[in-house]
Simulated scan of single mutants.
Amino acid sequence: MSEKSKYFVIKEKAVPEVLAKVVEAKRLLDSKKGMTVQEATEQVGISRSSFYKYKDDIFPFHENARGKTITFIIQMDDEPGLLSEVLQAIAENHGNILTIHQSIPINGIASLTLSVDILPNRGDAEAMVDDIEACQGVHYLKILGRE
């Protein structure tokens, strides 16, 4: 019986240093033609064995999110125009809203659940999350799931 893969989305500050360096080495290999794994790992300060051990298991969020559906929950102020600003951030990063549900605000805070399709070859989930979190009045954003 094969074991099903489980995926986790974690913030960069929680990623062990070796894994962050594996991602950096992969970026170097992709950006510099002719660079060897040995050169990339030496440049970022990890062993080749660490690179090979983790290279297929760690990648930037945006790399694996294109062409996928992501569900977010957002807590935000109940302010005119804020929902429009959040939706604009999604559109600017080539996301297509599939579902949207906003609760009745309690104490001036609304909860919003969104399912967003990240368009293949165009969408940028990482920038989308950054842009939504940067909206004045957004207090909390959590990624609930990814399909």
Rank of each mutant, 00 (worst) to 15 (best):
K33H: 14
Y54D: 01
R66L: 14
F51H: 03
F51T: 04
K53N: 07
S49G: 04
A25N: 07
E24F: 11
Q43K: 14
E24L: 13
F61H: 01
S50E: 12
K55F: 15
K21V: 15
R27L: 14
S31M: 13
E42Q: 13
P60T: 08
N64Q: 05
M35A: 05
Y54K: 01
Q43Y: 10
F59D: 01
K26S: 05
K21W: 15
K26V: 06
K21I: 15
G34V: 02
T69G: 00
F59W: 04
S49Q: 08
E39V: 10
K21Y: 15
T69K: 09
K21Q: 13
V18D: 00
T41H: 05
N64V: 13
N64S: 06
F59P: 00
A40C: 13
R27W: 10
K68M: 13
T36K: 11
F61K: 00
V18H: 04
G67R: 07
A25Q: 05
T69R: 12
K32S: 08
K33S: 15
V22G: 01
G67V: 07
R27M: 13
T41V: 15
F59A: 04
G34M: 03
H62S: 10
R48F: 05
I58V: 15
K55W: 13
M35K: 07
V37G: 07
V23E: 04
A65R: 01
V22Y: 06
V37E: 12
L19H: 08
